[in-house]
Simulated assay, not measured.
Amino acid sequence: MKKSVFFGALAATTLVSGLAAAATLDDIKARGELICGSNTGLTGFGAPDASGNWSGFDVDLCRAVAAVVLGDATKVKFVPTTGETRFTALQSGEVDLLVRNSTWTFSRDSELALDFVAVNYYDGQGFMVKKDLGVSSAKELDGATVCIQTGTTTELNLADFFKQNNISYQPVTVADDSEAQRQYLAGACDAYTTDASGLAASRATMPDADTHIILPEIISKEPLGPVVRHGDSAWGDVVRWTYYALLVAEEKGVTSANVEEVATSTADEEVKRLLGVSGDMGAKMGLDNDAFKRAIAAVGNYGEIFSRNIGEGTAINLARGLNALWTQGGLQYAPPFR
């Protein structure tokens, strides 16, 4: 009997917590604002300007979700989070959604009770050093001091890499990218390690960028993506399919400039469903049928977002690489809108 009472109480508690978590979409609609956990300031990915206006690759995904849910891409409050505070902010309900170069791992998916709903950037960990250090490989960093953010996968990968190569290092722990860059430029560490995209973003803001090199080794897999809480699959679906809508739009040639014209002229049945012309795709998620069309109109397709914020020709100057569409040899692939 005691066992039955215990499991009955546990089931009731689980049900209540699940119902509470599932209210995220309704809460956002009632509030009229999406609260998005962001980076503290990573150029190209998520950073405010002097007037507090946020822009970047990750920022645009938050804005796309706001356009889908609220009909207005500007209805987003950005909450800066560090490597140590980001997941707590999401777990506690301080933010509705976390989009700030966070790596999908087994332990984060299970132990932290979080759901990574997609991969918006395939990355890997690298190292940056000053040219005058005289090294051309991370394997030459024996005895080096290395700036590393706490609470990140890079911290663990760093330890693994040096152990596997039988070399030593001295960690210099920092809270975020900005502090890492300051410490590195001040000479507090010989090398700075983080995701290769983050290194490129940091180098782009340095006054003497040409005197710094990113070493060739990529020592890990870092699938980065948007995160929601466990127990809220309806909200996770909204975020997931907003992202996939941006991918399908690029694949089909739908852009922020032509989306309205395409919606009235296309003969492509998948595009019709994507843009709300047929299929009631939005209604199936508690959204307007033209919700995904609004997102594309507001921020563009995935390729536009990439090119505008971090692509070749920007200060970050990243090639698409693994983040090219599957039709172009990359890993970005969306399930069908059907």
Rank of each mutant, 00 (worst) to 15 (best):
residue 172 V to D: 08
residue 240 R to F: 04
residue 150 T to D: 06
residue 275 L to H: 06
residue 271 V to I: 10
residue 205 T to L: 11
residue 207 P to V: 14
residue 277 V to C: 11
residue 228 V to S: 03
residue 223 P to W: 13
residue 288 D to A: 15
residue 246 L to K: 09
residue 252 K to D: 04
residue 157 N to P: 00
residue 174 V to T: 15
residue 150 T to A: 07
residue 178 S to C: 01
residue 262 V to F: 00
residue 229 R to P: 01
residue 198 G to Y: 03
residue 217 E to Q: 08
residue 230 H to N: 05
residue 212 H to D: 13
residue 240 R to S: 13
residue 252 K to I: 14
residue 231 G to V: 08
residue 286 G to C: 14
residue 198 G to F: 05
residue 265 S to F: 09
residue 287 L to T: 12
residue 230 H to P: 00
residue 196 A to Y: 11
residue 286 G to R: 10
residue 276 G to Q: 04
residue 246 L to H: 03
residue 215 L to I: 04
residue 178 S to P: 01
residue 150 T to M: 11
residue 214 I to T: 04
residue 162 F to V: 06
residue 174 V to R: 03
residue 204 A to C: 11
residue 270 E to R: 02
residue 154 T to H: 07
residue 233 S to K: 05
residue 186 A to I: 09
residue 285 M to L: 15
residue 237 D to T: 11
residue 228 V to G: 02
residue 279 G to L: 14
residue 266 T to Q: 00
residue 148 I to N: 06
residue 294 R to L: 08
residue 176 D to E: 13
residue 268 D to M: 04
residue 149 Q to T: 04
residue 240 R to Y: 07
residue 261 E to P: 00
residue 252 K to G: 08
residue 280 D to S: 13
residue 269 E to G: 03
residue 173 T to W: 01
residue 216 P to Q: 08
residue 280 D to H: 15
residue 233 S to H: 11
residue 186 A to F: 08
residue 246 L to Y: 12
residue 160 D to K: 15
residue 256 S to Q: 10
residue 288 D to G: 14
residue 256 S to L: 02
residue 275 L to A: 09
residue 223 P to N: 12
residue 231 G to Y: 09
residue 221 K to D: 12
residue 224 L to K: 06
residue 175 A to Q: 15
residue 220 S to Q: 04
residue 270 E to C: 01
residue 207 P to T: 15
residue 167 I to E: 15
residue 184 Y to F: 15
residue 166 N to L: 02
residue 252 K to V: 07
residue 151 G to K: 05
residue 148 I to H: 06
residue 168 S to V: 08
residue 225 G to R: 00
residue 200 A to E: 12
residue 259 V to M: 02
residue 152 T to P: 09
residue 217 E to S: 03
residue 201 A to G: 11
residue 230 H to C: 01
residue 151 G to C: 05
residue 165 N to A: 03
residue 246 L to W: 09
residue 156 L to C: 00
residue 189 C to T: 06
residue 164 Q to G: 09
residue 186 A to T: 10
residue 185 L to P: 13
residue 213 I to D: 12
residue 235 W to G: 12
residue 263 A to L: 09
residue 172 V to H: 03
residue 151 G to L: 00
residue 231 G to N: 12
residue 194 T to M: 05
residue 216 P to T: 10
residue 165 N to I: 07
residue 212 H to K: 10
residue 243 Y to M: 07
residue 268 D to F: 03
residue 158 L to H: 05
residue 178 S to F: 10
residue 236 G to V: 14
residue 255 T to M: 03
residue 216 P to Y: 13
residue 209 A to R: 15
residue 169 Y to I: 03
residue 257 A to F: 00
residue 206 M to E: 01
residue 202 S to V: 14
residue 219 I to F: 08
